[in-house]
Design a protein around this nucleic acid. Sequence first.
DNA 1: GCTGAATTGTGTACTTTGTACATTATATAT
DNA 2: ATATATAATGTACAAAGTACACAATTCAGC
Lengths: 240, 240
Amino acid sequence: MEELVRPNINTTPVELMPDFQFALSVDCVIFGYDEGVLKVLLIESDLPAYKGQWSLLGDLLRHDEDLDEASYRVLRERTGLTDMFLEQVKTFGAVNRHPAGRVLTTAYLALVNVKDYQLKKKENALQWKPVSEIQTMAFDHRLILDTSLTVLQRKIQEEPIIFNLLEKKFSLRDLQHVFEQILGVEFDRRNFRKKLFTTGLLTDVNEMEQQVRHRPGRLYSFNQKAYEQIKRKTFVGLQF
Amino acid sequence: MEELVRPNINTTPVELMPDFQFALSVDCVIFGYDEGVLKVLLIESDLPAYKGQWSLLGDLLRHDEDLDEASYRVLRERTGLTDMFLEQVKTFGAVNRHPAGRVLTTAYLALVNVKDYQLKKKENALQWKPVSEIQTMAFDHRLILDTSLTVLQRKIQEEPIIFNLLEKKFSLRDLQHVFEQILGVEFDRRNFRKKLFTTGLLTDVNEMEQQVRHRPGRLYSFNQKAYEQIKRKTFVGLQF
DNA sequence: GCTGAATTGTGTACTTTGTACATTATATAT
DNA sequence: ATATATAATGTACAAAGTACACAATTCAGC
């Protein structure tokens, strides 16, 4: 078989092996919900090949760090946030995806509360771009963004992660609007409320919206403990 | 910021960069359904550190191949199969996961028809092991297997990929049994049939089971075209 | 303090989907 | 001919999803 005659990890000292000549990076697709719009945090590419184009926030993997740690480090270093929803999406490994050599990248999906971020930001080169307005991007980052958005759409229907995009206390209108923004559909307001209440995941915090120019709505918080109990009874059913 | 003073792809020739010293592999979690049991195709590890332990089928990524291609190559070289369900699951990147150095691996989920495979197999070192009987494995392969199984459980409920485990023509009993094996639940037979028929994805091939020691059931095939039409109307709904 | 604008909060009838459950029919093995 | 194993089928009830309308509250502007 072909692979038996090629140098491999059993036949060759590591430092001489052509197999150990890959670079790895992580790229974070950081979603935020701001003023009724789904946005993603981008930076202008610093690579000549992609001058002026928008790029995801990423960095090369270091030798002494786990892949998951690297994504966490990028988030922390670039946004100052340390406690966010962060999950691996997919690894992109096309041969020519990076002009500097064979660099594969693992995409991570992050959901942050834009209000938290704004208090701590340090870099002005970063921008929250509305997802719907993004055209071309550097590298294969447009593909990565599209893939991550699809994953986000699926995941918010399966797990209550959407609350990571909102403040601790939120109105049902905000909650419904984030769903609608991400999924690109509209829900009936009464049915949406009914559905959310019957999940038992909302806690009424007995406060009202402030500074709205209409009748203020009640505020709710996500009840994490209730979810921990519910999620053990894993749903089983076919839906294709 | 810390990363600005480290060597990076903008400041250093590629061949000298410490960042280009990673190896990447793909590992295929190849599921098959055989004699009523969910099995996975494994090989005994050839690494001294894991002598005698079971390992997933994998290989190092080559410099001139895409990541997806590498997984396809492993499947083809090891099983002779060229047309199977194959999808990336996740990349595992713990620092010390491989004894020979910093090797990250991307896991791929494959679903094959065991009958097809048996006609073409060449390697005797490979074995179909019942998933329920697997204990420890080499490297972090047990973690990879568990992760992939969870992904499989989710995906068969969302997309009609389970047919890849069966022969082209199958009985409803077989279909139900695969679902039950993978999900670890039991369905009511009448309700299961009703559900499957109403999906419109089954074509009655007007044949009966052969060589069964009881009344033979009708055989069906998966109607791919019907699915292509249905899947555009993406289901939207909350289910947590 | 009245009016208009915007949005909240609520309930019911209907449809669709899921669930529980038992009997007759057909093929094989002996 | 009989026993065994499984196929094929329908109905009543429960649960969940959907469509839909009106009164109440707050703010802004006059």
